[in-house]
């Protein structure tokens, strides 16, 4: 199972980075969003993965999921949203001011 999980996370990273390397701002935004999913999963996995473990404190819980990475990831998700939002608006602003959506601010190859 570990192999599949790590492959999925790695695959998501690859997809995100490929999109971030594209020349259009919207692709970069989508890529970054995907990369942050992957990073969140990675952080989450660093606390080890257990299914059917207790998430809440209770006297008859046998095992708990590690809460610390979860707390980190929770804020990371929200912050990631803030970042995506900022980037999207930046892209719109750049498009409005520059008249194109190329990350370098101009279309056409040099």
């Amino acid at each position: 199972m570990e192999i599949l999980i790590s492959t999925a996370i790695g695959f998501l990273v690859a997809c995100g980075i490929y999109l971030m390397l594209r020349a259009r701002t919207m692709d970069v935004v989508i890529g970054l969003t995907m990369l942050s999913y992957a990073v969140n999963l990675f952080l989450f996995a660093s606390g080890r993965l257990v299914s059917n473990a207790a998430a809440l404190i209770s006297p008859d819980a046998a095992a708990y999921a590690d809460p610390l990475p979860q707390a980190l990831v929770l804020t990371a998700i929200v912050i990631g949203f803030g970042m995506t939002a900022f980037l999207v608006v930046l892209a719109i602003r750049a498009f409005g001011d520059l008249g194109n959506d190329h990350v370098d601010g101009e279309t056409g190859k040099k």
Partner: peptide, 28 residues
């Protein structure tokens, strides 16, 4: 770009794998 992305993906995947299969100590 695909090569770069692939490289990064393989790197992260190996790292995740290594973490998931190594012994665990937590502050939690």
């Amino acid at each position: 770009d695909a090569a770069l992305a692939g490289g990064a993906g393989v790197g992260v995947a190996s790292l995740t794998w290594a973490i998931l299969t190594s012994p665990f100590e937590t502050l939690s």
